[in-house]
Amino acid sequence: MSKTCLVVDDSSVIRKVSRHILESLGFEVTDAENGEDGLAKCDEAMSDLILLDWNMPVMNGIEFLKALRARPNGDAPKVVFCTTENDVDHIREAMNAGANEYVMKPFDHETLELKLQLVGFE
């Protein structure tokens, strides 16, 4: 069975780059351009992994994460926050809201692969 990933990011470039990396790692990828769209996709089918942007219009990453974790089976996906915010308070807030890991933008294939290994994807 293939691993699934939902990429939630308002940047089409980041979604495209992430999809390319994830597909090369064997993931089946869907994407969403904001948190609201992302939650709708989670309601249709919960992914194994969610790559989540912090700063988005409509619903930001933290709001998405809190709403996701409150849903039935919302604790199942591994969530990796992808963001340009690198101060300790942001990282702590993300982890407290239920993120599993954290990756800085811009990230490359190697960095993302390493983070995915840390959350349990071989």
Results as ranks from 00 to 15, higher is better:
residue 7 V to N: 07
residue 5 C to W: 03
residue 94 A to T: 06
residue 54 W to L: 15
residue 16 K to A: 09
residue 74 G to Q: 13
residue 48 D to E: 15
residue 103 V to F: 07
residue 28 E to V: 10
residue 76 A to T: 07
residue 65 L to H: 00
residue 119 V to D: 00
residue 81 F to L: 15
residue 89 D to I: 00
residue 46 M to L: 14
residue 108 D to S: 13
residue 18 S to V: 06
residue 58 V to A: 15
residue 85 E to A: 10
residue 29 V to Y: 05
residue 80 V to H: 02
residue 40 A to K: 15
residue 88 V to M: 09
residue 53 D to V: 02
residue 15 R to D: 02
residue 27 F to D: 00
residue 16 K to Y: 11
residue 109 H to A: 01
residue 53 D to M: 03
residue 116 L to C: 06
residue 110 E to T: 07
residue 66 K to L: 12
residue 28 E to H: 08
residue 104 M to Q: 05
residue 7 V to F: 13
residue 117 Q to G: 01
residue 27 F to H: 05
residue 103 V to I: 14
residue 72 P to Y: 00
residue 70 A to Y: 08
residue 10 D to M: 04
residue 83 T to N: 11
residue 71 R to P: 03
residue 60 N to A: 01
residue 116 L to G: 01
residue 2 S to A: 13
residue 111 T to Y: 14
residue 41 K to P: 01
residue 36 E to I: 01
residue 103 V to C: 10
residue 103 V to Y: 01
residue 41 K to R: 15
residue 110 E to P: 06
residue 33 E to P: 02
residue 107 F to T: 10
residue 17 V to S: 09
residue 47 S to C: 04
residue 47 S to F: 06
residue 55 N to Q: 12
residue 43 D to G: 06
residue 28 E to W: 04
residue 94 A to I: 10
residue 33 E to K: 14
residue 15 R to A: 07
residue 22 L to H: 09
residue 78 K to S: 10
residue 51 L to R: 05
residue 116 L to R: 10
residue 58 V to Y: 09
residue 22 L to S: 08
residue 60 N to D: 15
residue 3 K to I: 03
residue 85 E to R: 08
residue 77 P to Q: 12
residue 43 D to F: 05
residue 20 H to V: 08
residue 1 M to H: 12
residue 81 F to A: 10
residue 30 T to A: 07
residue 60 N to T: 00
residue 5 C to R: 05
residue 67 A to P: 01
residue 97 A to T: 02
residue 83 T to G: 13
residue 106 P to E: 11
residue 89 D to E: 14
residue 11 S to E: 03
residue 62 I to C: 03
residue 48 D to G: 06
residue 112 L to W: 10
residue 101 E to Y: 09
residue 64 F to Y: 06
residue 74 G to D: 09
residue 38 G to K: 09
residue 58 V to H: 06
residue 45 A to W: 03
residue 105 K to V: 08
residue 6 L to V: 12
residue 20 H to F: 04
residue 119 V to W: 06
residue 70 A to R: 10
residue 58 V to L: 11
residue 104 M to I: 15
residue 74 G to T: 10
residue 120 G to V: 09
residue 60 N to P: 03
residue 118 L to W: 05
residue 70 A to E: 11
residue 96 N to C: 03
residue 2 S to N: 15
residue 25 L to C: 15
residue 69 R to G: 13
residue 1 M to F: 14
residue 120 G to K: 14
residue 46 M to S: 10
residue 66 K to F: 00
residue 59 M to L: 15
residue 113 E to C: 06
residue 15 R to G: 00
residue 23 E to Q: 14
residue 106 P to W: 15
residue 73 N to E: 10
residue 3 K to H: 08
residue 65 L to A: 08
residue 113 E to Y: 09
residue 63 E to H: 03
residue 40 A to H: 10
residue 36 E to Q: 14
residue 81 F to M: 12
residue 31 D to T: 07
